[in-house]
Structures are given as C-alpha cells and as structure tokens.
Simulated assay, not measured.
Amino acid sequence: MMTLGVAGHDREIDAHRDALQGCRDIQLVHQADCAAVLDQKIDGLVLLHVEDKSHWIGVALAAGLHVMATHPVQELSHSKVCVLSLGKHTHFCSALAVRRGVAHYSLELSFDSALFDPIDRETICNQAALDVCDLLLSTWGPADVLNSRMRNFFHLGRMEDVSVVLLRMCNGVEGSVTLLDFTAIAPALRIRAYAQDEMVDTSWPWVWEADDLAAYYRNFVAFIQGRAQPLLGLEQVAESYRLFEWMRMSARRDTILNRKEIKYNVL
C-alpha cells in the first residue's frame, strides 16, 4: 500500500479522492493545509492549488519525498519532481491525435479563476496557460512563429482576462489559442480542427476524467518506486514554460516572434 499526501483546494481534493476509489493499492491523506499533510507518514506528496507551492515542494524534497504538482512549478530540474497537467490529459490528446492532416486549428479555453478562491488569480491564470501549452506541444509539437495579445477587459488586477495567440508550428500547422477568464462560467475547452475535407468542432468540460487522473497517480507511484518515468517529462514541461514566456514576450513587445531569432530561458 502506497500512502500519498494531497494538499489543495477542497473542490480539487474531492475529484481526486473519487477518481482513486478503485485504486486499492493507493491511500490518500488529504488536507487543505500542506503542513498538516506533511505531518503524516506519507510516501509522496501531491500539490494542487496551494499557496507558496515552491516552499512546500522544498520542504517535501528536504524530507526525501517525491512530489507531483500542478503548474506553475519552478523546480523543473529536480529528479524527484513531476508535473500533473490537464493539458496532457489522455482524453484530450487522444481525441486530437486521431485527426490526421490538420492544417489549421482553433483552441479556446474558458475558465473562472475565482472558483479557486483564495488562491490568487495569477497562479490560476498561469496554470491554465501552461496546461494549454502542454496540450499544444503534445498534439502539434513546438511552435515556430507566434504573435500574441493579452488584455484586461473584465477583471481588475495585473493578470490579463483575455489572451489571444496566433501560431505556426514547426510542422507547418497553423492555429490560434484563446484564453478567457470570466466570472461564473464552467471551465470548458473548445477545439475546431480544419483538414482538407472536413472541419471538426467539439467541446469538452475542462475537468479530469477519473480514469485519466487515476493513471497519473499510478504512474506517480511507479515513479516513486523507480519503475517508470513520469507521464509528462520535465523536458516537455520546460518547453511549455518557454512557450508561455514567448507568448508573454510577444504581447509585451507587441510584435511577431520567430523561434530562430529569439533566445529565451525557462522561467
């Protein structure tokens, strides 16, 4: 039996607990407070929406624990840290992968950052953007050229409510990404993919499916035991952070950025 500590928002913890009901070899110790979770005897730590995530990752690593955390994560190079990303969601990626010959796509993610109050909007918005970067890289590979706009229209504060990015991927596929943070809307992902002979327009709730979430936990257990590598490798995670910084840089400079012309570092 593997005992995992889970810290995060009550809304998230309920979904994770329900997803693992069929995993009899995994026991969850869950609290909203990270310190309370770390006081328990656990084999690994899962961090969801928590304040001071980097601090608690450091505390867990100092105690010799493996950590699985949602974005944003700064400890990308540590061998005991892996990432839990809805953008690497098996259902989303498999549904997109079957669409062959896609020449253009439109991806729209809508969410309400206030759902995870009191976690700050910046953390929630950054996580949404990084999850989408994971999805883009998993489906269409690295970006070659992009141009982005980020503006505040609906909320006060330093984080943008609307982000629009136009991209051309290295494989020639072109597309657009829109992120919309708006009050009282259910998290949803809409994808339109255009091939030579068809157009697919589909939407999903931007939430975990139980089987996919359980697969992440089983993989985390295997990672702790040294039997497997994480489902989302740190090399791809680092590329997602680069892509996100590239988007922000394009918006700040109000210019088109080309992969060959710019040097950028992981955040």
Rank of each mutant, 00 (worst) to 15 (best):
F154M: 10
E108W: 04
L107E: 03
F92V: 04
N152F: 15
Q74P: 02
Q74G: 09
P187N: 09
T123Q: 14
H89Q: 08
E75T: 07
I185E: 01
V98I: 03
V164R: 15
S77V: 11
D161I: 07
E174L: 09
D131V: 10
K88A: 06
R158Q: 08
M159V: 14
S163F: 09
V173S: 14
V177T: 01
P142V: 04
F92M: 05
G157H: 11
R190L: 00
F111V: 08
L189C: 04
G157R: 12
D134M: 02
A114I: 07
T183E: 07
R99P: 00
T183M: 11
S106E: 01
L166H: 09
Q127F: 00
L136Q: 00
R168L: 15
S138I: 04
L137H: 12
H78G: 04
F111D: 15
S77R: 13
G87I: 11
F92G: 06
M159H: 06
C133L: 08
L167I: 10
V173R: 15
S94T: 03
A129Y: 02
G141A: 10
D144A: 14
A97D: 00
T70E: 12
R100P: 00
D161L: 07
R100F: 01
L180T: 14
S106Y: 05
H78C: 03
P187Y: 09
L189R: 00
L86C: 05
E122Y: 12
T178D: 01
G175V: 04
S163E: 12
E174S: 13
S110A: 13
D120W: 12
L137N: 08
E75P: 02
H91D: 04
F182P: 03
V102Y: 03
V132H: 02
V83N: 15
G172E: 13
F154E: 09
R190F: 03
L189H: 02
A128R: 13
T123S: 13
V98G: 00
L137S: 11
H71Q: 05
V73A: 13
K80A: 15
S79D: 11
K80V: 07
M169N: 15
L156N: 12
A103K: 02
M159I: 14
E122Q: 14
D161H: 14
T178K: 05
A143E: 12
R151M: 03
F116G: 03
G175S: 06
G157N: 13
L130Q: 05
S110M: 08
V164N: 11
T123I: 15
R151P: 00
L107S: 05
L179W: 11
I191C: 07
R190M: 00
